[in-house]
């Protein structure tokens, strides 16, 4: 609509979706190697050996594109006093009592926490992933380091996957959000309801 506000530029959207696609591929191939019940997922990648070959490259590509995305959005994700108050009122958040929450800027505290959790997980995944990448790197490290890396890789991947489940659910839950990432725009009413401080900023310009 003409009155809509642009929330994401085309490059930001492409960047986001490139990371999203790589995340899905990395998660499916990683889960195949994590639990026997999910080994069948390796079929999507051309079998177990191909899954083993491809997974680290997918992960490395995901990290690089995620880094670009995270740098684009870093200025909007600093947590402040309002955010801490918002997090304390988690009960109001999950019961849709948005009017009771402190005014939210471009991102709410939940989104900011997600941002930092993703940054942390991605860093742990990158470092531990390089360590356990047998083909090129593992021979440089000791066995205890590799075992620890394997555990941390699995743990960070678990936190990342659960975080993304929450992220996707939030987009389904809060109607009007999906459009922001699909077409780039949100309605003014949406902005005023969910991100009043941001909406005020945008409308002032």
């Amino acid at each position: 609509m003409k009155h809509d506000i642009e929330r994401y530029t085309p490059s930001q959207r492409s960047n986001h979706w490139a990371v999203a696609i790589l995340f899905v591929l990395a998660a499916l191939s990683g889960l195949a190697l994590f639990h026997p019940a999910l080994f069948g997922l390796s079929g999507l990648f051309g079998g177990g050996t191909w899954t083993r070959i491809l997974h680290p490259f997918i992960g490395a590509a995901m990290f690089i594109l995620f880094l670009v995305l995270a740098l684009r959005f870093r200025a909007h994700n600093r947590l402040d006093a309002n955010d801490r108050q918002w997090l304390r009122q988690m009960n109001d958040v999950v019961h849709n009592r948005e009017e009771k929450l402190p005014p939210v800027g471009r991102y709410n505290a939940g989104q900011k926490v997600l941002y930092w959790v993703l940054v942390l997980c991605m860093l742990v995944l990158l470092v531990s992933g390089i360590l356990i990448w047998r083909e090129y790197f593992s021979s440089y490290f000791g066995i205890t380091t590799l075992r620890l890396a394997a555990v941390l890789h699995a743990a960070a991947a678990f936190v990342l996957i659960v975080s993304i489940i929450v992220h996707i659910y939030a987009a389904i839950w809060i109607k009007g959000s999906m459009g922001a990432m699909l077409y780039g725009t949100v309605s003014r009413a949406w902005a005023r309801k969910h991100h009043p401080a941001w909406a005020k900023d945008v409308e002032r310009k």
Partner: peptide, 26 residues
Amino acid sequence: GMGAAVLAGFFHYTRVGPVRVEEDEA
């Protein structure tokens, strides 16, 4: 844990429901 996260989302949606913006506000 992963299964529980998906189920929690589903049940949240069916109990609390989605948040819609009243288009009148526009």
